[in-house]
Design a protein around this nucleic acid. Structure first.
Lengths: 161, 161
DNA sequence: ACCGCAAGGTCAAAGAAGGTCAAAGGAGGA
DNA sequence: TCCTCCTTTGACCTTCTTTGACCTTGCGGT
């Protein structure tokens, strides 16, 4: 089901989420080895998933002692909780930023796949009809509303009855 | 005589009902295979039966590891009063309209006091910084996002407690 | 400097899904 | 009968992934 790229993404995301500062260093060849694939596969994953648009930046160096460093702009959302994530969201959010956020929340276990899917749908439906910059404002508004509702009653216990 | 489309619909619905969270992932080619039909038949069923109006969202991805994900907004078949309200909200909502809406939802028992209060706060925070007409757009977006999350919680949180 | 190895980078081709669209088929009603 | 609406099919398109050949960069030794 999940593709090789997805598994590599999950692996790197896992490392990021468990890092102290939302910043990791890996060797391309090592990662490729772990997943028994060609090194350029790792490059592909970095290029398609860990983009600045989604809130990551990647630097690397070649030659002996070379490395790839991935830095997350939203370090460890799973440790800080939905409330903290919510506070970091500003008034505007591009679709790429929203997608990156949802993915990392999903990876961090703060959102179920279903919740993430619902939120994606809602974002499309409520924001995509507008042009930038309006659509980005709407996206931030929708997602913050949704996160607030989720975080305020994570398991339905907030029902007063 | 149930048509092929009906049988495919029934099959997918069966999977949904037996899923824990009202969210399934299938491969188009596999489903087509099971019913010995062309893949586009599955697309047809999705397009005609699993529509947003009927309470379903469909997400898909192409390429290797591609899939079709179907999400039911209501894992439980019970209709939700919130859903109906949600569907009637347009793209714009004045603060007066929003307040009226929240009040009637609260009185109707569809929202707890706490939820309503939370939503009021979110509305103020996310929309009031802007001038009309933008603030009305933002209000509609926030409130729809929040209602969606409430009305689609798998644990039936949206029912009157 | 120069050379050679040890990284990582690029790019394009091949492969693996799903999407589109229009034509053909079928069932029911005016 | 004829018309309309829903189904079924299939040819062709678009998107995403995987692989591999070849390129560039950095470091260390001579």
């Amino acid at each position: 089901m999940s593709s090789l790229s997805d598994r590599i993404e999950a692996y790197l995301m896992h490392l990021l989420l468990h890092s102290q500062d939302g910043c990791i260093e890996v060797r391309r060849a090592e990662v490729a080895d772990r997943f028994a694939c060609v090194p350029s596969q790792v490059t592909y994953v970095l290029a398609t998933r860990f983009t600045p648009e989604r809130g990551f930046y990647v630097e690397s160096r070649r030659g002996g002692g070379g490395y790839i460093r991935i830095v997350a702009r939203h370090p460890r959302p799973e440790a800080s909780g939905l409330q903290a994530v919510w506070q970091r969201i500003g008034r505007s959010l591009t679709s790429g930023q929203a997608e990156g956020l949802l993915r990392s929340l999903e990876q961090g276990g703060l959102l179920t796949r279903r919740q993430a899917a619902l939120m994606r749908q809602a974002l499309r439906q409520e924001a995509d009809w507008a042009e930038p910059p309006l659509c980005d404002l709407l996206r931030a508004a929708v997602i913050k509303g949704m996160l607030l509702m989720l975080s305020s009653s994570p398991d339905g216990r907030d029902r007063i009855g």
